[in-house]
């Protein structure tokens, strides 16, 4: 019960901050190089991927 709820909110936080951090970096790269949203999308995908990897590391690696 305790561990489950903790895990759910942590997963939500990781996914959100993955998107925000890498999407934000992509957004500033776009502003810097003058592209239109290309690097934002790349950053979002990268952030989502690494956030999912982090979730897998923390909660899926060893069963239990």
């Amino acid at each position: 019960m305790n561990k489950d709820e903790n895990a759910l909110w942590s997963i939500f936080g990781y996914l959100l901050s993955g998107l925000l951090v890498w999407g934000g970096i992509g957004y500033f790269v776009d502003r810097w190089l003058g592209y239109d949203r290309v690097f934002t999308l790349v950053g979002l995908l990268l952030g989502m991927g690494s956030a999912l990897y982090l979730v897998w590391l923390r909660f899926g690696r060893h069963s239990g």
């Binding site: 759910l8 996914l15 899926g60 069963s63």
Partner: peptide, 19 residues
Amino acid sequence: VLQPIAFLGFALAEALALF
């Protein structure tokens, strides 16, 4: 056994929603 599977499924579904 089920817990990591459920959490990973939740993470994938939640990822789409946040995306």
